[in-house]
Design a protein around this nucleic acid. Structure first.
Length: 873
RNA sequence: GCCCGGAUGGCGGAAUAGGCAGACGCAGCGGACUUAAAAUCCGCAGAUCGCAAGGUCGUGGGGGUUCAAGUCCCCCUCCGGGCACCA
C-alpha cells in the first residue's frame, strides 16, 4: 500500500466483488435502451436464414404476471440462441389492447379507456425492458390504435364482398356481466369465459357472422400438417371442428286419417284441420343409415319448424312444447343441459320410413339439438344409447337390425347386449341389405337413397360460424351502414377507418355505448346520399389477435395491412417458425388465426396455409399447488422478484424449476438458489478474469494437462447437452443444471488453476464459452462478463459455441457389473473396450468374485459400453 | 361417460434407444470462518437393519415380458386438463 495516503487506488477497486444485479442490470439496460436497433430484424437481403419466434401478445392489464415472465423467458432464450446460430431473427411484441377491462376501468376510475390502455402499455413495456427481453420494438403493434384496427375493418369489407361476412338473427350467448354477446368458443361450462360464475343467457339478436364453416374441412385436414403442434391441441381442435360423415334422409309426414287411433301408442290429439293439409317432409341427419330399418320413431328438436307447424294446429301440444323449451333454456343456463332427463312428447303425427314404408311416430324430444345436423333424428333404440334410454322410458318399440359378426361373437346368434353400437357387425331384418357389413351397407343405402331421390350423403360439422358482434365500446367499429332506402351498405374503403369516438359516456348500462353517440351513429349513405345509421356494435377482440403477427412483418404500412413480400419472407411456406403461448388458447385464438390465415391466402395476400409451423404451449405458474390469483392471495409479483434477486435470476428460475411444458410451482427459495448460483459464476469469473482475458488469441496447447483436459471435456459435454436441447425437447431446466455442473467443476478446479496447471488459453476458452452458454438464460450477467473479458463483438452476434467431439470424449468409462441383475461393482475400463476385456475385468473384480463364490455361472451378458451382468445359480 | 396428460426422496425435478434410480437445485443436518450472527466455504443426506463392513427394500397399486423395467405389455387407483345428449 502506498504510504503517501492519497495515491490513486488500483483501477478495479470500484469493481464490485459481490454479484450485485441491482447495479449491473440497470446499467446494461440503459446501454441497451440507447440502441434501438439492437434487436431489430435485418432485411431479407442480409442473406441469413430467417427465424420468426413469437410469443402470444398480452392484454395490457398494466402488470406482467409470472405466466408472462415464463412465456417470454422461453421465447427470449430461443430468440437469443437463434441469433447466435446466425439466423435473421424476428422477435416482436405487441398489445391486445381492445377489450372490456378498459371499459370497466373507465367506469371505476373515470379514466378514458384509451388513456388507461396506453399508460398500461407504457408500464408493461418498461417491465419487459427490465427483464432484458430482446424485442424489436420498432415493430410494436397496438390493436386499439386506428393504424391497426382500420385493417380489421378493411378485412371485414373484403369478407363482406365475398359473402364471408353476413348478418343474421340468431340465438346468442349473452353475458349479463359483460352486457354483450359471446362466441360459442367464449362460453365455458355454460358461463362466461371472463366471469366464471356468471351463467350465459340465451337471447335473440341480429349479429354479424364470419363464415368460418367455409373452411371447416380445410381447418380439419391441415391439422395433420401441423406436426410441430402439441398433439393435445390438435385433438382439441379436431373435436371442436367435429366433422362427421353421414347421410340426409327424407321422411314424408303422413296424414293422420290413414291410421286408426288404436294403432297409436299414445292418444292422438290432432284436430280436424290438420287432416286437410299435406304436412310435407322431415329430413334427418344420421351417421348410421345402416341401422335405418331399426328406426322406430322420429325425434324433432323442440325448435324445429315442423314442430311449430304441428303446434299451430294443436294448442295442447303447443303448451307442452313450450314447457319443454323453458326447461331446456334454464338447463342450458345452468350448464345442466347434458344431464337433463330425456323428455319427449308424441305429436300425434307419423312419418314414413322410405326404406320399408313403415310408419314411425313423430316425437318432440329435448335431447335433440336444433343447430346440429337438421334438428331431426331417426331414433334407433337398439343401436344408439340415447335412443335406447328414451325408448325404455316411453316404452317404444326396439328393433334389432345388426348383429356381431359370428366369428368374433362370443355368444353366437344370441341377441347382443343393448344398446349395441359396434360398426363391425352384420345387418339383419334390413330387406335387401341383409348380411351386409355396416360400412358396406352405409354406402349401399346412401346410394340407394340418392338414386330414389329421398336422400344423399352429407358431411356435418360441429364448428359454427363465428359471431363477432359485441355490444361494447372499446373495440373495432364494424364498418357498416343501415340506410332506409338501400338497406345494409358497407362503408366505402376510402372512408376507413371508421374512428372510434374518443369522448364518450360509457357509464350507462344496456345496449351498445356507441348507439348513444349521435355524431357517430348519424352518417350519410354512400349510395343514395341520404341519412344512414351506423352499425354500433364492435368486433370481438379475437379479430385483432387473428392476424397481428402478420402486421409485425410490416408494422408501419399505411396503405395495406402489410406488404405481401414482407409476409412471404417471414412466413415462408410454413408460417411462424415457433409460436409460444398458453394452452388456454388452444381453441379460441388458434382456430380463429388459422381461419384468418386461410382467408388471407384466398385474398391473395399470403402464400402460407397455416400461421405457425411449430407451437409450444407452456405450463401454468402455480403457487402452493394452486393457480396464482388475487382471490387466493398467492400472487407473486415479477417486480418484487426482480427487485430482490434481479431479472436474470427471476427469468432463469422460471426456466429452471420445471420443464417448460409442465406446470411450475413458484418457490421463492428456488429463486434465491439461482441468485446464489449467479453469484458463484460472477465470483469465479472475476477471480480468473485477468488470466482468461490474456488467453485470448492463443491457440489451445497441443498437449493438455489432466486438469485442462478434464475442464475442456466437461465444457464440451455441456455444449453438446445444451445445443441438443435447443434443437430438440427444450428442457431448459436440465440445460441450466448442466451449466451449474460445469461451474461447479470450474470452481472445484480453482486451486489447480491458481497453481498454474491450467493455461490462460484454456481459461479463456472456458470463460468465453460459459458466457455464451449462459447468454440465452441470463443476458445481463453475460453482458457484464463479456465486457470484462474484453470482448468487443456484440454478444448477440457472437457465434454459438461449437461442439468438439474429440475434446468431449472420455478415455475411460465406468461399467456397472451386476450379478443376477443386482449391482455388485463398477469397473473402470478404456472407452471402447471389447466384450472379452469387459468380461475378464468384471470376473477379476473382488466384489464380483465374492458375489458369485460357490455358484455356477449360467450366462454372461456383456453390452459393450453399457454393462456386464452375470447370471448365476 | 369419452379423449389427453401425470404420479419418482422432506420439496421442485433428473434418468433423450430397456442397462449404475435420485443429476441439478431447494429445504435440512454436521463442520470451518466469526466475539456472535448473516453471508460464504467444506462435508452428509431415499427408507430400513447394522458400531462398522455390508445387507434388505425402493419410481401410485397388482400382474406379465426380459439376463435386466421408472422406461415395454395387461389390469386397477388417484390427481390435473379438455370434450360432453353432436345423432
Amino acid at each position: 500500500m502506498s504510504s503517501t495516503g492519497n495515491a490513486s487506488a488500483p483501477e478495479n477497486v470500484t469493481q464490485e466483488l459481490r454479484y450485485n444485479p441491482a447495479e449491473i442490470e440497470p446499467r446494461w439496460q440503459a446501454t441497451w435502451d440507447a440502441q434501438p436497433d439492437l434487436y431489430a430484424a435485418e432485411s431479407p437481403a442480409c442473406g441469413k436464414p430467417k427465424y420468426y419466434v413469437l410469443e402470444m401478445l398480452p392484454y395490457p392489464s398494466g402488470q406482467l404476471h409470472m405466466g408472462h415472465v415464463r412465456n417470454y423467458a422461453i421465447g427470449d432464450a430461443l430468440a437469443r440462441h437463434q441469433w447466435m446460430r446466425g439466423y435473421n431473427v424476428l422477435h416482436p411484441m405487441g398489445w391486445d389492447a381492445f377489450g372490456l377491462p378498459a371499459e370497466n376501468a373507465a367506469l371505476k376510475n373515470n379514466t378514458p379507456p384509451r388513456e388507461w390502455t396506453l399508460s398500461n402499455i407504457a408500464a408493461m413495456r418498461r417491465q419487459m425492458a427490465r427483464l432484458g427481453l430482446s424485442y424489436d420494438w420498432q415493430r410494436e403493434v397496438t390493436t386499439c390504435l386506428p393504424e391497426y384496427y382500420r385493417w380489421n375493418q378493411w378485412f371485414f369489407l373484403k369478407l363482406y364482398e365475398r359473402g364471408l361476412a353476413y348478418r343474421k338473427k340468431s340465438k346468442v350467448n349473452w353475458c349479463p356481466e359483460c352486457a354483450t354477446v359471446l362466441a360459442n368458443e367464449q362460453v365455458v361450462d355454460g358461463c362466461c369465459w371472463r366471469h366464471e360464475e356468471t351463467p350465459v343467457q340465451q337471447r335473440d339478436l341480429e349479429q354479424w357472422f364470419l363464415r368460418a364453416t367455409r373452411y371447416a374441412d380445410e381447418l380439419l385436414r391441415d391439422l395433420d400438417k401441423l406436426e410441430g403442434w402439441p398433439e393435445k391441441v390438435r385433438t382439441m381442435q379436431r373435436n371442436w371442428i367435429g366433422r362427421s360423415e353421414g347421410a340426409l334422409v327424407d321422411f314424408e309426414v303422413q296424414r293422420k286419417e290413414k291410421f286408426s287411433p288404436a294403432d297409436a301408442p299414445v292418444t292422438l290429439r290432432l284436430n280436424e284441420r290438420m287432416r286437410e293439409e299435406a304436412p310435407g317432409k322431415i329430413t334427418v341427419f344420421t351417421t348410421r343409415i345402416d341401422t335405418i330399418y331399426g328406426a322406430t320413431s322420429l325425434q324433432l328438436a323442440p325448435e324445429h319448424p315442423m314442430v311449430a307447424q304441428f303446434c299451430a294446429a294443436d294448442s295442447v301440444l303447443g303448451r307442452e312444447v313450450q314447457v319443454l323449451l323453458e326447461q331446456q333454456k334454464s338447463a342450458r343456463e345452468k350448464d345442466a343441459f347434458g344431464t337433463l332427463e330425456k323428455i319427449g312428447i308424441f305429436t300425434g303425427h307419423y312419418a314414413k320410413n322410405p326404406f320399408n314404408d313403415e310408419l314411425l311416430p313423430i316425437w318432440v324430444a329435448n335431447y335433440v339439438l336444433l343447430d346440429y345436423g337438421t334438428g331431426a333424428v331417426m331414433s334407433v333404440p337398439a343401436h344408439d344409447a340415447r335412443d335406447y334410454e328414451f325408448a325404455q322410458k316411453y316404452n317404444l318399440e326396439i328393433k334389432i337390425v345388426i348383429l356381431p359378426r359370428r366369428a368374433e361373437s362370443a355368444h353366437e346368434g344370441a341377441e347382443p347386449l343393448l344398446p349395441y353400437t359396434e360398426e363391425d357387425s352384420l345387418l339383419i331384418n334390413s330387406g335387401p341389405f341383409d348380411a351386409m357389413g355396416c360400412e358396406e351397407a352405409q354406402r349401399a343405402m346412401t346410394a340407394y337413397a340418392a338414386e330414389k331421390g329421398f336422400g344423399k350423403s352429407q358431411v356435418t360439422f360441429r364448428l359454427k360460424d363465428w359471431g363477432i358482434s359485441r355490444q361494447r365500446y372499446w373495440g373495432t367499429p364494424i364498418p357498416m351502414l343501415y340506410c332506409e332506402k338501400d338497406g345494409i351498405v358497407p362503408v366505402p374503403e376510402a372512408q376507413l377507418p371508421v374512428l372510434l369516438p374518443e369522448k364518450i359516456d360509457i357509464t350507462q348500462q344496456g345496449g351498445s355505448p356507441l348507439s348513444r353517440v349521435p355524431a357517430f351513429v348519424n352518417a350519410i349513405c354512400p349510395k343514395c346520399g341520404g341519412a344512414a345509421r351506423r352499425e354500433t356494435d364492435t368486433m370481438d377482440t379475437f379479430v385483432d389477435s387473428s392476424w397481428y403477427f402478420y402486421r409485425y412483418t410490416d408494422a408501419k404500412n399505411s396503405s395495406a395491412p402489410f406488404d405481401s413480400a414482407a409476409a412471404a419472407y417471414w412466413f415462408g411456406e410454413q408460417g411462424i417458425d415457433q409460436y409460444i403461448g398458453g394452452v388456454e388458447h388452444a381453441i379460441l385464438h388458434l382456430i380463429y388465426s388459422r381461419f384468418w390465415t386461410k382467408m388471407m391466402r384466398d385474398l391473395g395476400l399470403i402464400k402460407n396455409d397455416e400461421p405457425a409451423h411449430r407451437l409450444f404451449t407452456q405450463g401454468m405458474v402455480i403457487k402452493n399447488g394452486a393457480k396464482m390469483s388475487k382471490s387466493k392471495g398467492n400472487v407473486v409479483s415479477p417486480d418484487d422478484m426482480i427487485a430482490r434477486y434481479g431479472a436474470d435470476a427471476t427469468r432463469m428460475y422460471a426456466l429452471f424449476a420445471a420443464p417448460p411444458d409442465r406446470d411450475l410451482d413458484w418457490q421463492e427459495d428456488g429463486v434465491a438458489g439461482i441468485s446464489r448460483f449467479l453469484s458463484r459464476v460472477y465470483r469465479y469469473a472475476l477471480s480468473t478474469m485477468p488470466r482468461a482475458a490474456s488467453g485470448r488469441g492463443q491457440a489451445l496447447p497441443a498437449s493438455l494437462t489432466p486438469t485442462e483436459q478434464k475442464l475442456l471435456r466437461k465444457l464440451h459435454q455441456t455444449i453438446r447437452r445444451i445445443s441438443n436441447d435447443f434443437e430438440g425437447r427444450w428442457h431448459f431446466n436440465t440445460c441450466i443444471a448442466a451449466i451449474m455442473e460445469l461451474v461447479n467443476d470450474l470452481i472445484a478446479a480453482e486451486p489447480e488453476i491458481t497453481a498454474g496447471s491450467v493455461r490462460d488459453s484454456v481459461l479463456y476458452a472456458a470463460t468465453r464459452n460459459l458466457i455464451l452458454l449462459l447468454q440465452p438464460f441470463a443476458p445481463y450477467l453475460s453482458a457484464e462478463l463479456w465486457s470484462l473479458l474484453g470482448e468487443t463483438t456484440p454478444l448477440l452476434r457472437a457465434s454459438w459455441p461449437a461442439f468438439d467431439a474429440a475434446l468431449a470424449a472420455e478415455d475411460t468409462i465406468g461399467i456397472p457389473v451386476q450379478v443376477n441383475g443386482k449391482l455388485r461393482a463398477v469397473i473402470t475400463v478404456p472407452i471402447g473396450s471389447a466384450e472379452e476385456l469387459l468380461r475378464s475385468t468384471a470376473l477379476a473384480e473382488e466384489k464380483v468374485q465374492a458375489a458369485i463364490a460357490g455358484k455356477e455361472i449360467t450366462k454372461v451378458i456383456v453390452v459393450p459400453g453399457k454393462l456386464v451382468n452375470l447370471v448365476v445359480r
